[in-house]
Amino acid sequence: MLYQQERQDVCEVTKMMFNRFVTNAAGGNISVKINHEHFIMTPTLMAQQKFCDLSPDDILVLTRDGEIIEGKGNITREFNMHIGTYDTLPNAQAIIHAHPKELMVFASLGLEVSHLTESTRKLGEVKTLPYAPATSMELAEVVKTYMRSRKSDIPVATLLREHGVLIADTSLRKAYDMLERLEYEAYVNFQAAVIGALGLYKGEK
């Protein structure tokens, strides 16, 4: 089996995402850049059909043109969004797209996540991109254009309007770490807004 350890790692992170509610049965996907020609990626419908409980042979080994070399199942149509991000961020080695509970509120309303804690400040802006239909080439182009504006920033995270979050980093574990940090940041943002609206916090004296 090609890249067995890397594919096992993707399985572990995928299951953790589902169990910890940073994605849901509506989907999400993970990819890792192995080298210039080969990528590994979760198959389409990984959440809906398997509740993110995958085995290494479920993980697809792909060329940059989307040809399946190994793995069961079909390639997700989000592959274009992933490959476009790799093309514009040469330092990216892993990408996670997910549907986290707290961040989905910001993505659905088109809001930017503020850095109220220090754990996510290295991301810089975390804005919501203009709406484009899920899995579409239009969405892939929206993401690619934004990533081009970020130049070589790593890590980078952005929200997809009404759809979820996309995070790129230098390794899969780092990307997952940033996903959880950002989900907690969204929770802090929401609770801070509630506390402010109730008049319980008026800022530092």
Rank of each mutant, 00 (worst) to 15 (best):
residue 1 M to D: 03
residue 2 L to R: 06
residue 2 L to T: 09
residue 7 R to G: 04
residue 7 R to L: 08
residue 8 Q to E: 09
residue 9 D to N: 15
residue 15 K to Q: 11
residue 16 M to E: 15
residue 17 M to Y: 01
residue 18 F to T: 03
residue 19 N to M: 10
residue 21 F to V: 11
residue 22 V to R: 02
residue 23 T to C: 03
residue 27 G to Y: 06
residue 27 G to K: 04
residue 32 V to D: 06
residue 35 N to T: 07
residue 37 E to L: 12
residue 38 H to E: 13
residue 39 F to D: 01
residue 40 I to W: 00
residue 41 M to T: 09
residue 43 P to H: 01
residue 44 T to M: 02
residue 48 Q to G: 12
residue 50 K to T: 09
residue 51 F to D: 15
residue 53 D to K: 07
residue 55 S to E: 15
residue 57 D to C: 04
residue 58 D to L: 11
residue 58 D to R: 01
residue 60 L to M: 02
residue 60 L to W: 04
residue 62 L to R: 08
residue 63 T to S: 10
residue 64 R to W: 03
residue 66 G to Y: 10
residue 68 I to P: 05
residue 70 E to F: 07
residue 70 E to W: 00
residue 71 G to Q: 04
residue 71 G to S: 04
residue 71 G to Y: 14
residue 75 I to E: 05
residue 79 F to A: 02
residue 80 N to C: 12
residue 84 G to Q: 03
residue 91 N to V: 13
residue 92 A to S: 12
residue 92 A to N: 00
residue 92 A to H: 11
residue 94 A to G: 07
residue 94 A to F: 09
residue 97 H to K: 11
residue 99 H to W: 08
residue 100 P to V: 10
residue 107 A to G: 09
residue 107 A to Y: 02
residue 108 S to T: 15
residue 113 V to K: 01
residue 117 T to I: 05
residue 118 E to R: 05
residue 119 S to D: 08
residue 120 T to N: 02
residue 121 R to N: 12
residue 127 K to V: 15
residue 129 L to W: 10
residue 130 P to Y: 06
residue 130 P to F: 12
residue 131 Y to S: 04
residue 136 S to T: 13
residue 140 A to Y: 01
residue 142 V to K: 01
residue 144 K to Q: 13
residue 145 T to H: 05
residue 145 T to G: 08
residue 150 R to S: 13
residue 150 R to N: 06
residue 154 I to P: 04
residue 157 A to K: 07
residue 159 L to K: 04
residue 166 L to Y: 13
residue 169 D to R: 05
residue 169 D to F: 01
residue 170 T to H: 06
residue 172 L to Q: 00
residue 173 R to D: 08
residue 179 L to K: 03
residue 182 L to N: 05
residue 185 E to I: 11
residue 186 A to S: 09
residue 187 Y to S: 03
residue 191 Q to H: 12
residue 191 Q to G: 07
residue 191 Q to I: 15
residue 192 A to N: 08
residue 192 A to D: 00
residue 193 A to R: 10
residue 195 I to E: 06
residue 197 A to T: 08
residue 198 L to T: 04
residue 201 Y to S: 13
residue 202 K to N: 12
residue 203 G to K: 01
residue 203 G to S: 11
residue 203 G to F: 11
